[in-house]
Simulated scan of single mutants.
Amino acid sequence: MVELYGRSMSRRDIAASAGSFSQFAGVRLMTLEDGVERGIRMLEFRSGTGLRFTVLVDRAFDIADCEYRGLAIGWNSPAGFKHPGLAEYEGEGGLAWLRSFSGLMVTCGLDHILFMNDEPGDSYVYGPRKTISHSLHGRIGTIPGKLTGYGEDWQGDDCILWCEGVVTQGTVFGEHLELVRRIEIKAGTNDIRLTDRVVNRGFYRTPHMYCYHINVGHPVLAEKSRYLAPIREVVWAAHAGSDYRKQEVGYRTMPAPQMNFHEQVWQHELVADGNGEVPVALVNDALGIGFEVVTRKDQFPCMFEWQNLQSGQYALGIEPSTNHVLGHSAARERGELIWLEHAEERRYDTTFRILTDTHAIAASEQRIRNLADQPAEDFPALSGNHVAIGGRG
């Protein structure tokens, strides 16, 4: 059954109420036609609850806009949803990735995440390519996808709204990796389900690193918004050098937009539930709205919290990652870099959930607290314990 307007409606009920289901919910394909976005194919999802989100086919099927009943969930940066043909991946010493950085979700990978890095190129057996140079967060997020399908899938009286596609990152004498992505939501609900497979289609042994940069904006992010996570220990903070408290912004409670704010990044070691799932949320108690991300610990063993609280760029990032914040070289040295042989793959299952009222917020907070009581201090002691990630090498 589909929950619409406070009623459980069968497929027949819905058909009797309108000439097309698209009056209530659906998926449609469109093309953006102005400014830096011109030419990008985009899928618009409406679940029937007041939830609307868009998927950029030509930017790795990442989720761009997201709103619930007029309240923005996702983040729009000054860069806009730039057409991939305008991307400057290797510019500005590797930081030009930031000129295409916007949206609720930006995928990072497929063979590199985090800051710039040069790695040995010997696995590709090509003499002139002695090193592989990586810019910030990898190439995948600005590669156009191949749309293999989208639409409505009726399963009895339930309707699944979905899309699927393939994004290829490949070169001669180098990696040939493929991202196969499916996004779906049951009509009448607020749970967006993301299923990714990263496959090595090439015949070279190839490294794989993966991260989602999930960016929550105002009004979910606002003064006194709270970050909730089942934190066993706070491992690391990028700003913990000479003055950990310099900006007087801790990890738990967010301030209003700040002038001259320097980004802060934390790594938390999180606890999974009995099913291996890890929930993290940002909630705005005053508005009764929140956003929860649920990942799997065996797929994303690491979690970062990104605070970009600068006026005009105000965002909070939830970042599940395959690797520690220590970076690419450290992952190699520690034997924690994933290597994929031909046809080998890794799978990632993630849920984005809109917490629509105070009851949903309370339920999420209780679920998280049942796993671990996060530190009560704004500036907890940092353990420095980057737990070894097994099963790799």
Rank of each mutant, 00 (worst) to 15 (best):
M1N: 11
S8C: 09
R11I: 04
R12C: 07
A15K: 13
S17C: 10
A18F: 04
F21E: 15
G26L: 14
T31P: 04
L32C: 05
D34L: 04
G35Y: 07
V36K: 02
R41G: 10
E44K: 15
F45A: 01
R46Y: 09
T49G: 07
R59S: 14
A60Q: 08
F61G: 03
F61E: 05
D62C: 06
D62Y: 01
I63V: 09
A64Q: 03
D65I: 03
C66R: 05
E67S: 11
R69S: 07
G70S: 08
I73T: 05
G74D: 12
W75R: 05
G80E: 12
P84R: 00
A87R: 02
G93D: 07
G94W: 05
A96W: 06
S100T: 07
M105Q: 04
V106S: 14
H112I: 01
L114E: 13
F115N: 13
D118Y: 02
D122S: 13
S123R: 13
R129L: 14
K130N: 08
K130W: 14
H134L: 06
G138Q: 05
R139K: 09
R139W: 03
Y150F: 15
C159S: 01
G165F: 03
V166T: 11
G174I: 01
E175F: 00
H176W: 05
H176K: 13
V180L: 04
V180F: 03
V180G: 02
R182D: 00
G188K: 13
I192A: 07
I192N: 10
R193T: 12
D196A: 04
V198F: 01
M209Q: 11
Y210T: 05
I214D: 03
N215T: 04
V216N: 08
P219A: 06
L221D: 02
Y227V: 15
L228P: 00
P230Q: 06
R232F: 13
V235M: 09
W236F: 13
A238E: 15
G250V: 02
Y251M: 09
Y251R: 10
E263R: 03
Q264Y: 02
W266E: 04
W266F: 12
V271P: 00
N275A: 05
G276D: 02
V278N: 03
P279D: 02
D285Q: 08
G288D: 04
V293A: 04
K297H: 01
Q299N: 09
C302H: 06
F304W: 15
W306M: 00
G312W: 13
Y314N: 09
L316C: 09
I318L: 14
E319T: 02
S321N: 08
V325P: 11
V325N: 13
H328S: 03
A330Q: 10
R332I: 08
E333W: 11
W339Y: 14
W339M: 07
E344N: 02
E345Y: 07
E345T: 02
R347S: 01
Y348S: 08
R353H: 07
L355R: 07
D373N: 12
D378Q: 14
L382V: 04
H386Y: 08
G391N: 12
